[in-house]
Simulated scan of single mutants.
Amino acid sequence: MSMNGEYLRVTPRELTRALEDPEWLLDLAEEIQDAQEDDDETTPAEARHFTTHQTWNLLDFLLKRSLFPVDIVYGEQLLPEADDWSYGPPRYVTADRVRLAADALTRMTYDQLIQGVDHSELGAAEVYPQNWDSPASLDWARDLFTPLTEFFRAAASDGHALVIWLD
Protein backbone atom coordinates (compact mmCIF):
# COMPACT_ATOMS: atom_id res chain seq x y z
CA MET A 1 0.00 0.00 0.00
CA SER A 2 1.29 3.46 -0.85
CA MET A 3 0.74 6.87 0.68
CA ASN A 4 -0.70 9.53 -1.61
CA GLY A 5 -1.12 13.27 -1.13
CA GLU A 6 -4.76 14.27 -1.64
CA TYR A 7 -6.40 17.69 -2.11
CA LEU A 8 -10.04 18.75 -2.14
CA ARG A 9 -11.25 22.20 -3.17
CA VAL A 10 -14.04 23.48 -0.94
CA THR A 11 -16.07 26.65 -1.01
CA PRO A 12 -16.07 28.88 2.07
CA ARG A 13 -19.56 27.62 2.86
CA GLU A 14 -18.43 23.98 2.55
CA LEU A 15 -15.44 24.66 4.79
CA THR A 16 -17.73 26.16 7.43
CA ARG A 17 -19.94 23.09 7.28
CA ALA A 18 -16.89 20.78 7.38
CA LEU A 19 -15.63 22.47 10.54
CA GLU A 20 -18.97 21.68 12.15
CA ASP A 21 -19.44 18.22 10.60
CA PRO A 22 -16.21 16.48 9.53
CA GLU A 23 -18.08 13.26 8.64
CA TRP A 24 -20.04 15.22 6.04
CA LEU A 25 -16.73 16.37 4.53
CA LEU A 26 -15.43 12.81 4.24
CA ASP A 27 -18.61 11.82 2.39
CA LEU A 28 -18.22 14.85 0.10
CA ALA A 29 -14.57 14.00 -0.60
CA GLU A 30 -15.42 10.41 -1.49
CA GLU A 31 -18.30 11.53 -3.71
CA ILE A 32 -16.11 14.01 -5.60
CA GLN A 33 -13.25 11.50 -5.97
CA ASP A 34 -15.62 8.86 -7.33
CA ALA A 35 -17.18 11.31 -9.80
CA GLN A 36 -13.79 12.47 -11.06
CA GLU A 37 -12.49 8.92 -11.49
CA ASP A 38 -15.29 8.40 -14.03
CA ASP A 39 -14.27 11.53 -15.98
CA ASP A 40 -10.81 11.18 -17.53
CA GLU A 41 -11.02 14.57 -19.25
CA THR A 42 -11.14 16.78 -16.15
CA THR A 43 -8.22 19.21 -16.18
CA PRO A 44 -6.46 20.24 -12.95
CA ALA A 45 -8.05 23.68 -13.28
CA GLU A 46 -11.52 22.11 -13.47
CA ALA A 47 -10.94 19.46 -10.82
CA ARG A 48 -12.19 19.59 -7.26
CA HIS A 49 -9.91 16.72 -6.26
CA PHE A 50 -6.20 16.40 -7.03
CA THR A 51 -3.56 13.90 -6.02
CA THR A 52 0.21 14.18 -5.94
CA HIS A 53 0.36 10.41 -5.59
CA GLN A 54 3.53 9.30 -3.80
CA THR A 55 5.44 12.50 -4.58
CA TRP A 56 3.96 14.36 -1.59
CA ASN A 57 7.03 13.88 0.64
CA LEU A 58 9.47 14.89 -2.12
CA LEU A 59 7.40 18.02 -2.74
CA ASP A 60 7.32 18.76 0.99
CA PHE A 61 11.12 18.44 1.21
CA LEU A 62 11.68 20.69 -1.81
CA LEU A 63 9.10 23.32 -0.79
CA LYS A 64 10.37 23.56 2.80
CA ARG A 65 13.92 23.84 1.50
CA SER A 66 12.81 26.76 -0.71
CA LEU A 67 11.10 28.44 2.28
CA PHE A 68 7.70 28.18 0.62
CA PRO A 69 5.27 30.43 2.53
CA VAL A 70 2.37 27.94 2.90
CA ASP A 71 2.31 24.30 3.94
CA ILE A 72 0.61 22.90 0.86
CA VAL A 73 1.60 19.28 1.48
CA TYR A 74 0.19 18.68 4.96
CA GLY A 75 -2.13 21.68 5.27
CA GLU A 76 -1.91 24.37 7.90
CA GLN A 77 -4.84 23.86 10.25
CA LEU A 78 -6.19 20.64 11.69
CA LEU A 79 -9.82 19.95 10.93
CA PRO A 80 -11.18 19.79 14.49
CA GLU A 81 -12.75 16.55 15.63
CA ALA A 82 -12.12 14.82 12.30
CA ASP A 83 -11.29 11.13 12.39
CA ASP A 84 -8.25 9.78 10.58
CA TRP A 85 -8.81 9.62 6.85
CA SER A 86 -6.09 7.01 6.38
CA TYR A 87 -2.79 8.37 7.63
CA GLY A 88 -4.10 10.93 10.09
CA PRO A 89 -6.86 13.53 10.16
CA PRO A 90 -7.28 16.01 7.32
CA ARG A 91 -5.96 19.54 7.54
CA TYR A 92 -6.93 22.60 5.58
CA VAL A 93 -5.59 25.79 4.04
CA THR A 94 -7.84 28.86 4.05
CA ALA A 95 -8.77 30.63 0.82
CA ASP A 96 -6.41 33.54 1.59
CA ARG A 97 -3.49 31.15 2.11
CA VAL A 98 -4.46 29.21 -1.04
CA ARG A 99 -4.18 32.50 -2.95
CA LEU A 100 -0.73 33.15 -1.44
CA ALA A 101 0.37 29.60 -2.34
CA ALA A 102 -0.97 29.90 -5.90
CA ASP A 103 0.93 33.16 -6.39
CA ALA A 104 4.14 31.62 -5.06
CA LEU A 105 3.73 28.46 -7.18
CA THR A 106 3.13 30.55 -10.29
CA ARG A 107 6.41 32.41 -9.74
CA MET A 108 8.55 29.25 -9.54
CA THR A 109 9.51 26.43 -11.84
CA TYR A 110 10.30 22.87 -10.96
CA ASP A 111 13.88 23.45 -12.10
CA GLN A 112 14.17 26.27 -9.56
CA LEU A 113 12.71 24.00 -6.89
CA ILE A 114 15.32 21.28 -7.41
CA GLN A 115 18.24 23.60 -8.08
CA GLY A 116 21.18 22.74 -5.86
CA VAL A 117 19.54 19.61 -4.42
CA ASP A 118 21.60 16.44 -4.43
CA HIS A 119 19.57 13.23 -4.64
CA SER A 120 21.54 11.83 -1.70
CA GLU A 121 19.98 14.51 0.53
CA LEU A 122 16.60 12.86 -0.03
CA GLY A 123 17.87 9.52 1.18
CA ALA A 124 19.56 11.08 4.18
CA ALA A 125 16.30 12.86 5.07
CA GLU A 126 14.38 9.58 4.62
CA VAL A 127 12.02 11.15 2.11
CA TYR A 128 9.21 8.71 1.24
CA PRO A 129 9.31 6.36 -0.68
CA GLN A 130 13.10 6.23 -0.37
CA ASN A 131 14.06 5.45 -3.97
CA TRP A 132 16.65 8.19 -4.42
CA ASP A 133 19.43 6.23 -6.07
CA SER A 134 20.27 8.61 -8.92
CA PRO A 135 20.21 12.32 -9.79
CA ALA A 136 17.34 11.60 -12.20
CA SER A 137 15.13 10.63 -9.25
CA LEU A 138 14.72 14.36 -8.51
CA ASP A 139 12.59 14.57 -11.66
CA TRP A 140 10.00 12.23 -10.18
CA ALA A 141 7.53 15.00 -9.27
CA ARG A 142 8.21 17.17 -12.33
CA ASP A 143 5.10 16.00 -14.22
CA LEU A 144 2.87 16.83 -11.24
CA PHE A 145 4.24 20.28 -10.45
CA THR A 146 2.51 22.16 -13.29
CA PRO A 147 -0.88 20.45 -12.74
CA LEU A 148 -0.58 21.14 -9.00
CA THR A 149 0.07 24.80 -9.79
CA GLU A 150 -2.95 24.89 -12.11
CA PHE A 151 -5.11 23.29 -9.43
CA PHE A 152 -4.02 25.89 -6.86
CA ARG A 153 -4.49 28.78 -9.29
CA ALA A 154 -8.04 27.65 -10.08
CA ALA A 155 -8.85 27.22 -6.39
CA ALA A 156 -7.47 30.69 -5.65
CA SER A 157 -9.38 32.22 -8.55
CA ASP A 158 -12.63 30.71 -7.26
CA GLY A 159 -11.96 31.73 -3.64
CA HIS A 160 -11.75 28.12 -2.48
CA ALA A 161 -10.00 26.67 0.53
CA LEU A 162 -8.26 23.30 0.33
CA VAL A 163 -8.58 20.23 2.51
CA ILE A 164 -5.42 18.09 2.45
CA TRP A 165 -4.74 14.56 3.67
CA LEU A 166 -2.59 11.50 3.10
CA ASP A 167 -4.38 8.43 1.85
Rank of each mutant, 00 (worst) to 15 (best):
H160I: 10
H160Q: 15
P135I: 11
A156R: 06
Y128I: 01
A156E: 05
Q130R: 03
G159S: 10
A156I: 11
D158R: 04
F151Y: 15
A141E: 11
T149P: 07
S157C: 12
A125S: 13
Q130N: 14
F151T: 06
A155D: 10
R153K: 09
P129H: 02
T149N: 04
R153A: 14
R153L: 10
W140E: 14
N131M: 13
Y128S: 11
F152A: 14
W140C: 05
L162Y: 13
F152E: 06
G159N: 10
R142H: 11
A154R: 05
W132P: 09
A125L: 08
L138E: 10
V127F: 02
A154P: 03
N131T: 03
L148V: 08
E126Y: 05
Q130G: 14
T149V: 01
F145Q: 02
W140D: 14
V163W: 03
G159Y: 03
R142P: 06
T146W: 04
P147G: 15
S137T: 12
Q130V: 00
R142E: 12
V127M: 04
A161T: 11
N131W: 10
D158I: 02
V163N: 09
Y128E: 15
V127D: 06
A156G: 12
A136E: 15
F152T: 10
A136V: 11
L138W: 07
A154W: 02
A156H: 00
T149M: 07
D139L: 12
A141P: 05
A125N: 13
W140N: 15
Q130S: 07
A154F: 03
Y128N: 15
A161F: 01
D143M: 07
W132A: 00
F151W: 13
T146K: 05
F145H: 04
L138K: 03
F151P: 11
G159Q: 11
T146D: 05
D158C: 05
L148C: 09
E150N: 13
L144C: 14
D143A: 09
A136M: 14
H160K: 12
E126N: 15
F145E: 01
H160M: 07
P129Q: 06
P135G: 13
A154L: 02
E150W: 12
A141K: 03
R153Q: 14
F145I: 04
T146N: 06
D133V: 09
W140P: 02
A161R: 02
V127P: 13
S134K: 00
L144Y: 13
R153C: 02
L162T: 09
P147F: 01
R153T: 01
A155N: 09
D158E: 15
L162R: 12
P135Q: 06
S137L: 01
E150I: 03
E126G: 00
L148H: 03
A161K: 04
Q130K: 10
V127L: 00
L148A: 08
S134G: 06
T149I: 01
H160P: 12
N131L: 00
F151E: 04
A154Q: 04
A161H: 04
D158L: 13
A125Q: 10
R142M: 12
W140Y: 15
T149Y: 01
L144R: 12
F151D: 12
F152I: 05
D133E: 14
A154M: 10
